[in-house]
Design a protein around this nucleic acid. Structure first.
Length: 636
RNA sequence: GGUCCCGUAGCUCAGCUGGAUAGAGCAUUUGCCUUCUAAGCAAAGGGUCCCAGGUUCGAGCCCUGGCGGGAUCACCA
């Protein structure tokens, strides 16, 4: 049985016997004893003063005596200002270490037969992946690993936004502007460019050509007439005295979309392309397929580098018409209402939201309609009891509305919906802006951390005798360990500042620090084996070790908390809890290695016990970092 | 303007869902490699936990009101 449960039960029984009162388990506040006091767990006795009609110190003392004589695992206690510090018997810790912590499956819960679907990444197909996607992917991947460890079956999916005006812009730019030297124009192969970047370049080229066209048009009489007519209505513009500056601001910030839709030639061509696509024009579909395939090939390369994969891809081109049936049904059920112009709405004011369109007056779907339909399809496909959407917090409102609608539609999975929202990633210089070219590209970033790790590794020389493949593998693990840990250690919902210089940092609170602790543990174990010591045998010897040193007990106590940390991370959808745990464990282990000799321990029992600590720490760190998608190097 | 999120050391972040003297890393300063990998260990300095009230035996954490930053309020996605 769990030690915290045992203490809880003991306290309940103690209060009952000493003061004749029944208390609920949640009334008991229990903490890990702070480092500066003696003990393992601390019970706070202030809440019992009313029941017992005594001072906290007296209660703590009486309860302490009760616990020691009634709970076998509690060896002794001390009282400091109403805090009852309980010391768990060394035998309990020893048994836990020898019987549980070294098990390769330690921390993994038994399969619970429950199924959860996690959606993450979900990119557009007009541009390569960037730092924002990286945070998303790492969160989604890590959550799926954590849920697996918590006993769930996990289905990892993403929605590829493969249609719409954005990809049409890339298509149009490629068709119009790509050099036509060869039979079919420039390709990723002919240019040697990574294929998703190749497509992204044409998206950028479209924007550039569009801006040129827009700038030229701004000199026209009609543009001037429009400016004169509209400028008064916009406060920011009318406040500027200099006419030229006001005009520039107006066209930059307030008129671009209208121009694109009503005047732009390129805009018109792009929209025509979208219409041809919707009409399933063969040439357009062929072009669309070709360019999307280039993007997918590029994405797969990046996923592979990041070490992630998906079980199922949903394509927007296949789902964008879904959800209309649900709207019909919802109308019948009275979940939605129809306006005179034919548009269909959901009145969500009862849920502190607003009215939301679910079908346009022309009968076509909007974004949320698709999402309703897609949720239903997913449930039909996999019947998960939970569906987690990893999407940035700018879409908080959208998901609130979506979930409320699905609930009202009476969907069976409605209570298992969760929006794992995370904050934007900023740079030390501020927000990433595609227009200013400050977006950090995922592939560039990965290349950069690998280059840095290579430099670092060469300087150290530890693995210089290894083969090129082995070296590359180790460097890859260390580099990505640094990058991933840097991002995942921050709580998802917090907006974070990502400093590229810090992401290649390998000292202190970093991934490589944790990896290094693990490498040292393994290195000691290997030496022990070379000295002729074997695992089952040393465990026998370790059984005789009873008086644990502080460093040892701290680590065993930490190991004990691994399963509950996984449970906590799963419940709160928070991988940063695992990152914090791994760092804490690595830190305590590094301290132990510095303070105590292992292979030259004072007794054979101590040596065996510490070797078992090495085994358990290595096992737990490897598992824990695995939950973050970080692999451990053999040496470094 | 309405709604939601965030505000902790110079910087980047923890703080176990209300408990003891608020912790790490980076940066600065200083010790420790003939001993299990120094990507390490130890030590020092560094705080108005945004502000003001309130609840409580007890508040960084809960409530109210401000201030600052961000997001969102489309028949866009």
């Amino acid at each position: 049985m769990n030690i915290t449960d045992l203490i809880q039960k003991g306290v309940i029984a103690g209060i009952k016997q000493l003061y004749g009162a029944d208390i609920a388990p949640e009334r008991i506040t229990m903490n890990i004893t702070r480092k500066e006091f003696e003990g393992d767990y601390t019970v706070v006795t202030f809440p019992f003063t009313k029941i017992a009609k005594k001072k906290p110190d007296e209660i703590a003392t009486e309860l302490g005596h009760f616990m020691v004589s009634n709970v076998a695992e509690i060896e002794k206690f001390n009282v400091v200002k109403g805090f009852l510090n309980l010391s768990i018997s060394p035998v309990f810790w020893k048994n836990f270490l020898l019987e549980t912590a070294g098990n390769p499956r330690f921390g993994q819960q038994e399969k619970n037969g429950r199924r959860v679907m996690i959606e993450f990444c979900s990119p557009n197909t007009n541009k390569p992946l960037h730092l924002g996607h990286v945070r998303n992917i790492l969160l989604g991947w890590s959550c799926s690993k954590i849920y697996e460890a918590a006993g769930f079956e996990v289905i990892k999916v993403q929605v590829i936004n493969d249609r719409g005006i954005a990809i049409c812009k890339s298509m149009l730019a490629w068709e119009k502007f790509a050099p036509k030297g060869q039979a079919e124009g420039a390709t990723p192969e002919s240019t040697g460019k990574k294929s998703d970047h190749f497509v992204g370049d044409y998206y950028v080229l479209f924007e550039k050509k569009f801006q040129e066209e827009y700038k030229a048009w701004q000199q026209s009489d009609i543009a001037d007439a429009i400016f004169q007519e509209k400028k008064g209505a916009i406060k920011e513009v009318s406040e500027i005295k200099a006419e030229a500056m006001a005009k520039a601001l107006f066209f930059k910030n307030f008129y671009k979309n209208t121009y694109f839709n009503e005047y732009s030639i390129l805009g018109k061509e792009a929209r025509e392309m979208l219409m041809k696509w919707e009409a399933k024009d063969p040439a357009t579909i062929a072009l669309w397929k070709k360019m999307n395939q280039w993007v997918y090939d590029g994405f797969e390369e990046t996923f592979k580098k990041l070490g992630v994969s998906f079980d199922k891809y949903y394509y927007e081109s296949e789902t964008y018409l879904l959800g209309k049936d649900a709207v019909e049904e919802g109308l019948e059920k009275g979940v939605f209402y129809k306006k005179e112009d034919g548009s269909v709405w959901a009145d969500l004011t009862g849920a502190k939201l607003d009215h939301k369109v679910v079908l346009r007056s022309d009968g076509t779907s909007v974004y949320i309609t698709q999402d309703i339909g897609t949720a239903q399809v997913r449930y039909k496909d996999f019947a998960p009891e939970k569906m987690v959407y990893v999407v940035a917090d700018e879409q908080d409102y959208h998901f609130k509305a979506l979930f409320e609608i699905l609930k009202r539609l009476g969907e069976p999975y409605a209570d298992g919906l969760y929006h794992l929202n995370y904050g934007m990633v900023d740079l030390p210089s501020g927000k990433m802006k595609s227009r200013e070219g400050t977006v950090v590209d995922a592939d560039d970033l990965i290349a950069e951390v690998i280059a840095e790790a290579t430099k670092e590794s060469e300087a150290r020389g530890e693995i210089s005798s290894f083969s090129e493949t082995e070296k590359a593998d180790i460097i890859q693990r260390v580099a990505l360990g640094a990058l991933k840990f840097q991002i995942i250690k921050v709580q998802p919902k917090k907006r974070m500042v990502f400093d590229p210089a810090e992401s290649v940092e390998m000292q202190g609170h970093t991934g490589p620090y944790v990896q290094y602790a693990n490498v040292r543990a393994n290195s000691i174990l290997k030496k022990a084996e070379a000295m002729g010591m074997k695992r089952p045998a040393w465990k026998e010897v370790a059984g005789a070790y009873v008086s644990l040193k502080k460093e040892e007990k701290d680590i065993v106590g930490l190991l004990y908390r691994f399963p509950e940390t996984i449970r906590f991370a799963a419940e709160t959808y928070d991988p940063s809890a695992i990152a914090a745990y791994c760092y804490d464990l690595a830190k305590n282990f590094s301290k132990l290695v510095a303070e105590l000799s292992i292979l030259k321990a004072e007794t054979e029992e101590a040596k065996a016990f510490r070797l078992e600590i090495c085994a358990a720490v290595s096992n737990t760190l490897t598992a824990g970092m695995g939950l973050l998608g970080i692999e451990m190097p053999e040496r470094m």
